[in-house]
Amino acid sequence: MTTYIIRRLIMMIPILFGISVISFAIMYAAPGKPTVMDLDPDISVEAREAQMERLGLNDPPHIQYINWMSNVVKGDFGTSFTKKQPVRDMIADRLPNTLILMIFSTILAIIVAIPFGVLSATKQYSKLDYGVTMTSFLGLATPNFWLGLMLIMLFSVQLGWTPVGGVSTLGADFSLLDRLHHLILPAIVLATADMAGLTRYTRSSMLEVVKQDYIRTARAKGFRESTVIYKHGLRNGLIPIITIFGLMLPTFIGGSVIVEQLFSWPGIGKLFIDATFERDYPVIMAITMFGAVLTVIGNLIADILYAVLDPRIEY
């Protein structure tokens, strides 16, 4: 197992290298220059040129890439073009906010999706099943930004129950309750789509499981239905869901881009959007690479969890 994990970690290096080349190329090919967004339209062409020269943006692309990469290997992600801050600090500042949002919404997605998926499967074709199915399709079909706006309109504007955005009340002392109060809406919005998908996957996986012979064996042992389903069924049913979950992990970054923008949540996603508008190359690259690492790690975790849940799998 340990050798397997080490091998997988080593395999990550060429993968991440490939991703970095492709992302760099795409970013470079995108129209616009970092200097275009810079402040004053009255800045002279010469000054802009000097700026381009100073940032190294006039070098040929492969030289730029090599310069960037040689710094990254040393752990230096460069300095933001617009904020003049080290990119590493900027990400470190915002990462906790994004992680809190991600973890919270993941937990939310799981605790809602799995029980409803199981219920939906064990009571197949019941009213509950149809209800859950309908709701999950609705959840899948609803765009995040629209749902977010509607929830803000309803809960923040009309009812005034939740704040419109931000991580905490400005100027107030730290309080957990205040944080949760701010967290709840963005977490719900971020969780919705995955919740819906996860419910469907749980349902179909459990439908397969309840037909298995070992479930009949468990019933023949005289166990109550809840023991049969949750002890004997669920562990088997979760195995395929693990893959989905591993793939879900990086999508939270994508989802958080929209949700963080909507709720002015100062996390990685919002940083990413801002950086893209400003053509802040070092920030864009750093976050892209962060997402790439998350994707590869998510897959690795899924593979490890497989072996944990299913004794038939050994590495």
Partner: peptide, 20 residues
């Protein structure tokens, strides 16, 4: 069930829970 009346099935390959 399982106490006073027990049952064994046709398919031993699939009648045992693979994860326990």
């Amino acid at each position: 069930r399982g106490n006073e009346i027990a049952m064994i099935f046709q398919e031993p390959m699939t009648s045992l829970n693979p994860v326990l």
